[in-house]
Amino acid sequence: MAAHGHSDDGTDFAHPMPLPVLFGVFFALVILTIITVAQASLDLGSFDIAVVMGIATVKACLVAGIFMHLIYDKPFNIIVFLSSFVFVGLFVIFTLSDSKMTSPSFEPKIDEPAASAEM
């Protein structure tokens, strides 16, 4: 069954993922999840967010590359997908720098007393 359709005669465009690869990726993802949860109890200081996002990105790459079949996909599809992250990056960076510069001027650091703020 596994040989079936796997470019046996060159006319088939289907590319079934071998099961061991799928299982391998799944277990890698589970192990990475356990590592993320475990590291939350360690104090890594300011590296914390970088470590968390790094692990999440490795997981995302595994899902996108293998489960979503991206590493065997047409280059154009890869470009389309990855280009979205370029725009997300621009969006987030500009918005963050803007809010960092302007927020203190109109954002009080402390809540008003309950009487005026609530209800």
């Binding site: 993922m17 990726v25 999840t33």
Partner: peptide
């Protein structure tokens, strides 16, 4: 964490489903 595991497993079964569709 449990929900993460559940979603990861569903991703596995989904990828497997695509394989099953391709291999009939």
């Amino acid at each position: 964490a449990i929900n993460t595991g559940v979603l990861l497993f569903s991703s596995l079964t989904m990828a497997w489903a695509v394989r099953c569709a391709q291999t009939e």
